[in-house]
Design a protein around this nucleic acid. Structure first.
Lengths: 189, 189
DNA sequence: GTAATTATTTGATCAGGATCAATGATATCA
DNA sequence: TGATATCATTGATCCTGATCAAATAATTAC
């Protein structure tokens, strides 16, 4: 159950066996059904998820009532609604299991307490933050510099499983275009 | 010379006097002329700047040769090309003094060595990363959810000095619209 | 397994912002 | 200060992707 998570952590930061066990012990298992929400806007619960199996989608609701997808997380990736996880505020985003998923989660309080008790955990979190910042910057840059068609082609090239595995509707939403537009882009490729 | 920087740091993280002095001693003064570049794409030099006076602009060059503005930093703000600062890669952005500016800078190597030697510095950097992530996320959200007109109105409301102090051309560039479009938006307000 | 819902495709129309062009206003610098 | 370059405004046109609509395909749920 902790196999994938153990590999993920030890690949990134050196932890002694005791420290690793202390970290792992704070993670709990959660099986989510397809389309189940494991985090809801307005809730105080702030958890960080690790995806053992399945796929998570973080999205928020726009002023016009429509959804906007922030990101997807597939197997062996962490996912959380980071802005709330950082400052402890109420969730501003939903987190949805797009497929039936097996998740490990850690509560925010436990996560932060590990920062003080496990020397290497601070380094792990810093790396996580740095990576999250870089991803976000890259995504913003893509929106600024690329057309919808180019964004789709880039996604297909760099993250083909997202296109192959997810329904068009969600891919379009992630690209911030309508599904009609995505359908037309694909038909003319 | 270190007055503003001292206040900035001590407002955010508790440092003893010795630690504070050790941090400050790594910062150097740099006076930049208007339009001078203090960081250039492709350069290995990675510095973090603190703006005592003036204004910095971070931008990158798009595939079509045009500029795209990442952010501005006015007085009492830190600014760096963070993606390169994080991983030590060559600069992928220019940093320009939009006005004649007085800057304090610290080299990446010095910054990172402080992480190991000054207990509070790790916390300072974590806070910096968290804040950078939140800003970036917010900006991405604005691009996804708002029209150019709405983005301008929001900027005017939340950051009026940016609109008042900077030339239209740069404001338009930051909003990712042409200066013609910004001119028309302003005329119809 | 069938009904009902949801997703996808295709067509027609519309609107907002880009582009190109020209003129007027500011800044810059020798 | 005057000459030059840069910036800002306004007009005309174009193009991309949104929107609305309808038909079909694919899932889901009972």
């Amino acid at each position: 159950m902790y196999e994938q998570l153990t590999k993920y952590i030890t690949d990134r930061v050196p932890l002694d066996e005791a420290g690793l066990q202390q970290v792992l012990s704070r993670f709990n298992l959660l099986k989510a059904k397809k389309n189940e929400l494991v985090g809801r806007t307005g809730e105080p619960s702030r958890r960080m998820f690790f995806v053992n199996r399945g796929c998570l989608r973080v999205y928020f609701i726009k002023a016009d009532g429509r959804e906007a997808t922030r990101r997807f997380a597939f197997e062996n990736a962490f996912s959380t609604s980071l802005t709330s996880f950082i400052d402890g505020s109420l969730l501003k985003e939903d987190t949805q299991a797009v497929e039936a998923s097996e998740l490990l989660y850690i509560h925010r309080e436990d996560f932060y307490s590990l920062l003080h008790t496990i020397p290497g955990w601070e380094v792990f979190y810093r790396g996580f933050l740095e990576h999250a910042y870089i991803s976000n910057t890259r995504r913003l840059e893509d929106f600024i510099t690329l057309t919808p068609r180019e964004r789709y082609q880039l996604l297909l090239k760099e993250n083909p499983q997202m296109v192959l595995r997810l329904p068009n509707k969600l891919v379009a939403n992630y690209l911030n275009i309508t599904q009609e537009a995505l359908s037309r882009i694909k038909s003319v490729m």
